[in-house]
Design a protein around this nucleic acid. Sequence first.
DNA 1: GGACTAAACGGACAAATGTCCGTTTTTATT
DNA 2: AATAAAAACGGACATTTGTCCGTTTAGTCC
Lengths: 210, 210
Amino acid sequence: MQLREERKDAAEHRQRILQSALQLFREHGVEQVSMHRIAKQAGVGQGTLYRRYGNKGDLCMDLIFDSYTKFKERVSFYLEQSAAESPDMRLDGVLGQCIDYIDDKADLLAVLRTLGGDQRPGPGTVYHSPPYRFMHDVFVRLILEIKQTQNRPDGAGEAEFVAHAIMAALCPDLYFELRFGQGMSKEQIKERFRAFYVERAYTDQVNATR
Amino acid sequence: MQLREERKDAAEHRQRILQSALQLFREHGVEQVSMHRIAKQAGVGQGTLYRRYGNKGDLCMDLIFDSYTKFKERVSFYLEQSAAESPDMRLDGVLGQCIDYIDDKADLLAVLRTLGGDQRPGPGTVYHSPPYRFMHDVFVRLILEIKQTQNRPDGAGEAEFVAHAIMAALCPDLYFELRFGQGMSKEQIKERFRAFYVERAYTDQVNATR
DNA sequence: GGACTAAACGGACAAATGTCCGTTTTTATT
DNA sequence: AATAAAAACGGACATTTGTCCGTTTAGTCC
């Protein structure tokens, strides 16, 4: 026996944990629910809960895993089927999908960021998590495409930086602030991202191709 | 008696707390030092410590208050004495000063962000803290100046958004990652900020004033 | 079915954060 | 100097996170 399946009891417990967490989160808000309470509600021990999920962030990660997978697929699919479009439009499209996703899952995503692990650099930071890497990579490619269209070479990892900058602006906290603190609509926020990250690039492109 | 001064014993305790915290932070790293330990080291009770500083973030805030004040003054002074320069150059200058400051205080600033309070929008978030407001305001003014130079009107709060975007990219965590995770030098990071936030604006400007 | 092993269990325990409240000290007033 | 109110004190306590380890259970092999 080389690779064992997840044990039946373990699988059942995970379902119970996820369901209990979801219910409690909905009822009392993510921040107000302790791990202890989730374990109690699910009828499992502390250790059982913690062995599976090292912290609330891990748990949230699993809670949004399905939706994240779908998000990832949507983005990948969009990129494939829009391959013929201009990279600017595609950047705009991806940004729109990110914002839709954040709008949908903002509360859980915010917890992820806060409880996601170390602050120190290296593995364990958000910057090395698969979701971050995935989106960062998508942005890097798009930016490189845009630069290529404009015949502007990429100065040693410039696109890498810009992708980080975009990701930073996409943080759920800021979205919260714009959406509810300042009362902007989702569409208004998308428009701002477009104006700043896409249209400026587009302007450059127009000028560069003259 | 209308306004009382801070009591003598309280003032002394605050000094002891700050000094103890600073020493312990230096010795063991900010994350490794508990509030309990700081209280013990300072020879005061838990309650005394917590009444003054609601959490470690508050304490760090006080620890960097002096340096923040100086930073603020440096920025204000720079803006005054560079009033004749182009807004692009001034934006670059301010960005440089921010990065210098982050580089200097990265560890404490990172704690501030993590432990700074609520995630929910409204007062209590980073976005409403005086330091954030101050820098955000500085960026808004500079961006408006740039737009004015280019004869581009500011579409309803566009500058506000861009300022948030810049602030987001200035988060200590990302700086850490670039600096130590990816091994970039401080100057390289400054160069990236300049290239993305200043030179692109400058390119636009050149084109717009043709 | 019996036995063995790896995985999972769960609750006690440790450590940290943050609160509460009876007690002490400072300070202004007389 | 006595007094009283305001402010500060401090440690016990509650809550939460996270760990440890002896015990139980599912899956496999015979």
